[in-house]
């Protein structure tokens, strides 16, 4: 059954889009991420313009992260003070990202920047995750037992910065400057690339700030939720590119898939999960790289100029 999308201006198969929502939702529930890095390329693949895809996915991620955040809230696994500080940076970053998005769109280089950001970010983060999880698996194989819960890394220069704040639930006493910085980068990337950034935020919080693992996913979901909800509003207000109908189909599929994904994820060892996520991230990054490096079949493309929609 085909349905005509009012903003994307093309008909799509409802069941295909719904299935995409479920599939990405399953992965997002399994790994505790938003899944934007998968959904945006998938939408572009079925013919949605990159700009509409990025803007629309933000509302889809808002839905899935709100559902996830509520679950973590019931288990008291969210550090609200830390989430609030991340948000200050996150909202400024989102505004900056939406501004740059609008500018690049006017310059005609938005597609290139989206593709390049995907290649660089996903390939590097994916490789790091694969390397780290393979090491962890090898270590486990050698020791034949789980290593003692080790506090990841020691104190870095990040912990020597001024403006220190105490985050009770995370048992942290760190400067707010790196917290704001991480929030800013996440909001910025989210607005430009249509990703929630959970797959970067979670490792960043663990390795850079030493946030305990029991509160890290819930806290990151709060940040994702607020930056993506505000990105939805900002993209709607400035670029008029959010397709509410497409978003609704995606988010209903997404929240259903996420439930099954979360159950599947709980049955797996965490380093295996990290390896799978790393491979997935790396694969998406390489897919974008292939497009950039391989000689395209069609050298020409066209796009509508501003104000003609």
């Amino acid at each position: 059954m085909d349905i005509y999308l009012p903003i994307a201006d093309l008909p799509v198969n409802v069941f295909l889009v719904f299935a995409m929502g479920i599939a990405v939702g399953f992965i997002s529930g399994m790994f505790g991420i938003g899944g934007g890095f998968l959904m945006t390329p998938l939408l572009i693949f079925i013919g949605v313009s990159p700009a509409v895809a990025v803007a629309t996915v933000s509302s889809h991620i808002a839905a899935s992260s709100f559902s996830g955040a509520l679950n973590y809230w019931r288990r008291r696994a969210i550090d609200l003070a830390l989430a609030f500080m991340l948000l200050i940076g996150g909202l400024i970053g989102t505004a900056a990202g939406v501004w740059l998005f609008t500018l690049l769109r006017a310059l005609g280089q938005l597609d290139l920047v989206i593709a390049l950001s995907y290649v660089i970010l996903l390939s590097s983060v994916g490789s790091l995750m694969v390397a780290e999880s393979v090491q962890a698996i090898i270590r486990l194989q050698r020791d034949k037992q789980a290593p003692p819960a080790r506090h990841p890394g020691g104190h870095t220069w990040l912990h020597g910065l001024p403006l220190k704040v105490r985050f009770k639930q995370s048992r942290l006493y760190v400067s707010v400057i790196p917290v704001w910085g991480i929030g800013f980068v996440m909001g910025f990337l989210g607005a430009i690339m249509g990703i929630g950034g959970g797959f970067i935020l979670v490792p960043a919080l663990i390795y850079l700030l030493h946030v305990p693992t029991n509160v890290v996913i819930g806290t990151s979901m709060v940040l994702t939720l607020v930056t993506m909800a505000s990105a939805t509003v900002m993209h709607s207000a400035t670029n008029h590119l959010v397709d509410a109908l497409l978003a609704l189909i995606l988010m209903v599929g997404g929240v259903i898939g996420a439930q099954f994904g979360a159950q599947a994820g709980q049955k797996m060892r965490s380093e295996r999960l990290r390896l799978m996520l790393g491979l997935l991230v790396l694969a998406v990054g390489l897919r974008f790289a292939v497009n950039l490096f391989v000689t395209p079949g069609e050298m020409f493309s066209f796009r509508l100029m501003e104000g003609d929609r």
Partner: peptide, 21 residues
């Protein structure tokens, strides 16, 4: 009404997320 449209879409996202949970 871009701004209002965005707010309504964001609310829709939150409702969907809440219903699911």
């Amino acid at each position: 009404n871009g701004l209002l449209y965005g707010i309504v879409t964001a609310m829709m996202a939150l409702m969907t997320g809440w219903l699911a949970s």
